[in-house]
Lab assay of single mutants.
Amino acid sequence: MSGIALSRLAQERKAWRKDHPFGFVAVPTKNPDGTMNLMNWECAIPGKKGTPWEGGLFKLRMLFKDDYPSSPPKCKFEPPLFHPNVYPSGTVCLSILEEDKDWRPAITIKQILLGIQELLNEPNIQDPAQAEAYTIYCQNRVEYEKRVRAQAKKFAPS
Rank of each mutant, 00 (worst) to 15 (best):
S2I: 08
G3R: 07
A5K: 06
A5H: 15
A5R: 04
S7P: 14
S7A: 01
A10K: 15
A10M: 15
Q11H: 12
E12K: 02
E12W: 05
R13A: 02
R13F: 02
A15P: 07
A15V: 11
R17E: 03
R17T: 01
K18V: 06
K18D: 04
D19C: 03
H20E: 01
P21N: 07
P21V: 00
P21K: 06
F22W: 04
F22I: 01
G23A: 07
G23H: 06
G23V: 00
A26R: 03
A26M: 01
V27D: 05
P28E: 02
K30R: 14
N31Q: 10
P32Y: 13
D33L: 04
D33A: 02
G34K: 07
T35H: 06
M36L: 14
N37W: 09
M39P: 06
N40L: 14
W41Y: 02
C43S: 10
C43N: 11
C43R: 03
A44V: 08
A44L: 11
A44Y: 15
A44P: 00
I45L: 06
I45H: 01
P46I: 09
G47C: 13
G47S: 01
K48I: 07
G50R: 13
T51M: 02
P52V: 08
P52F: 10
W53A: 00
E54Q: 12
E54L: 04
G55W: 09
G55A: 10
G55D: 14
G56Y: 04
F58R: 04
F58W: 04
F58C: 05
R61I: 09
R61T: 13
L63V: 14
L63P: 05
F64S: 04
K65N: 13
D66V: 09
S70M: 10
S70K: 07
S71P: 06
P72C: 07
P72K: 05
P73K: 02
P73R: 03
P73F: 03
P73W: 02
C75F: 15
K76R: 14
K76G: 13
F77M: 04
E78M: 14
E78Y: 07
P79Q: 14
H83I: 03
P84H: 00
P84Q: 01
N85M: 10
T91P: 14
V92D: 07
C93Q: 06
L94H: 00
L94V: 15
S95R: 01
S95T: 09
S95Y: 06
I96L: 06
I96Y: 05
E98S: 15
E98A: 15
K101F: 11
K101P: 08
K101N: 15
D102P: 02
W103N: 00
R104V: 05
P105A: 14
P105Q: 03
P105K: 00
A106R: 00
A106M: 00
I107W: 00
I107M: 12
T108E: 14
T108A: 15
I109V: 10
I109P: 04
Q111F: 15
L114C: 13
L114T: 12
I116R: 07
Q117K: 08
Q117V: 06
Q117W: 08
E118V: 10
E118H: 12
E118A: 09
E118P: 04
L119Y: 14
L119F: 15
L120I: 07
N121D: 13
E122K: 10
N124K: 01
I125D: 05
I125K: 04
Q126V: 14
A129E: 01
A129Y: 06
A129W: 00
Q130C: 08
Q130T: 08
Q130K: 04
Q130L: 13
A131L: 09
E132S: 11
E132N: 08
A133G: 07
I136D: 10
Y137T: 09
Y137M: 11
Q139G: 07
N140L: 02
R141Y: 10
E143V: 13
E143P: 06
Y144M: 00
K146R: 11
R147P: 03
V148H: 01
V148W: 03
R149M: 09
Q151E: 04
A152K: 02
K154I: 08
K154F: 04
A156Q: 12
S158E: 05
